[in-house]
């Protein structure tokens, strides 16, 4: 009966995952391997194709809007939605402006992604019964880790899917952007390529995300015990899930838990990059929600 309860929890969370994150790992991998049946993603590999990417998104904007109206949240990835709203001015360096606009579009997508993660967190049994301050703390500290984990299925060693899987942006192009833009994604690629060797499926990912959210060691938590109790149940469910989905993969559970340590370092570095950006880019505004999350984080 206990195993049955754990499987029921796994199914419940998987349903919430599908509801909130429709670009699943299965679909992203199908797109990346050319087996999705849809058109191949538009490839951005230089400034010219970045500008063409804006046109590409413009042409496809209507289906995207419908997507939102149906409350089917898109996958977690930096997007290009905001790119279409701004235009290059006649003055200044067009590449600089494009880079900043791309960064701003990533911000917009991140804000939407935070909302999706929040909805997913609320679906974890017992989460909404926690102290409201603790719910805020768990999200504040967990959400960037979740966003980074959810980027992994969209990435391979050569680049990443963005804009709901409609575009593939090359790793070399991202690396070529001016500092610190060009440095920001490289640690995520390095992490993702290693993480992807674990070959988790969407069911596994679901439970891992819930485990990360329910971390009882976040600074400032008021009532740790109920959080730890919830996490323990999800951990049992994850362990069982991995035994079923990867019977031959020894120590996968332990390997996965070790990734949580790497994640914290990536988040610390990411926040540092953002602080650097705010100093260097006078025209840059950080979205209030992202400001809230990153303020006094690490």
């Amino acid at each position: 009966p206990e195993a049955a309860d754990l499987r029921a929890l796994s199914r419940h969370l998987y349903e919430a995952y599908l509801k909130n994150f429709p670009l699943t790992k299965a679909k992203a991998r199908a797109i990346l391997s050319g087996k999705a049946g849809d058109k191949a993603p538009f490839v951005i590999h230089d400034m010219k194709s970045l500008m063409e990417g804006e046109q590409f998104i413009n042409c496809r904007q209507i289906p995207c809007q419908e997507h939102h109206q149906q409350q089917l949240a898109p996958a977690l990835a930096p997007g290009l939605a905001g790119l279409t709203e701004a235009h290059c001015g006649s003055d200044g360096n067009i590449s600089d402006e494009l880079e900043l606009r791309f960064f701003n579009s990533c911000q917009s997508r991140s804000v939407e992604a935070v909302r999706e993660v929040t909805e997913f967190a609320k679906s974890i049994p017992g989460f909404i019964d926690l102290d409201l301050n603790d719910q805020v703390t768990l999200l504040k500290y967990g959400v960037i880790e979740i966003l980074i984990i959810m980027m992994a299925p969209l990435m391979n060693k050569d680049g990443t899917l963005i804009s709901y899987g409609q575009i593939f942006m090359t790793r070399e192009f991202l690396k070529s952007l001016r500092k610190p833009f060009g440095q920001m994604m490289e640690p995520k690629f390095e992490f993702s390529v290693k993480f992807n060797t674990l070959e988790l499926d969407d069911n596994d990912m679901t439970l891992f995300l819930a485990v990360i959210i329910l971390s009882g060691d976040r600074p400032g938590l008021l009532n740790v015990k109920p959080i730890e109790r919830l996490q323990e149940t999800v951990l049992h469910s994850l362990e069982l899930q991995l035994k079923i989905s990867h019977p031959d993969s020894l120590q996968l559970f332990a390997k996965l838990l070790q990734k949580m340590t790497d994640l914290r370092q990536i988040v610390t570095d990411h926040v540092h990059f953002i602080q650097l950006l705010r100093k260097r880019e006078v025209d840059m505004c950080l979205h209030p929600l992202l400001q809230e999350i990153m303020k006094d984080l690490y």
């Binding site: 939407e112 909302r115 929040t118 805020v136 400032g220 929600l289 809230e292």
Partner: peptide, 21 residues
Amino acid sequence: LKEKHKILHQLLQNNTSPGDL
């Protein structure tokens, strides 16, 4: 904490749409 994280708090309490953000 809630005061310093008004939007997060709002997201937790309501079904905020992306437009509201």
